[in-house]
């Protein structure tokens, strides 16, 4: 019981501190939207770019 009370209080505190709320329709939609973006396949251009930057930094060394 005391545990429930504590949890309830914790949730209320959290809601007061957090204007978004963890489980509102908007919060869930946001995560869905962003989740789609994060799992999007990353084009090779970025790893190529980093390899070029790394190679340029050590012109005399072979980078693996």
């Amino acid at each position: 019981m005391a545990k429930d009370e504590a949890l309830k209080r914790h949730k209320t505190d959290r809601a007061r501190r957090d204007p978004l709320g963890a489980n509102t329709a908007i919060a869930r939609k946001l995560k869905e939207y962003y989740g789609g973006l994060v799992t999007d396949e990353v084009p090779d251009r970025f790893s190529d770019l980093l390899s070029r930057l790394e190679a340029a930094e050590s012109p005399n060394k072979k980078t693996s």
């Binding site: 973006l37 994060v38 799992t39 999007d40 990353v42 790893s47 980093l50 390899s51 930057l53 790394e54």
Partner: peptide
């Protein structure tokens, strides 16, 4: 470099 690669999905 490895860390940057790992951060790319979040950055995008």
């Amino acid at each position: 470099k490895t860390d940057l690669l790992g951060a790319i999905p979040a950055l995008r």
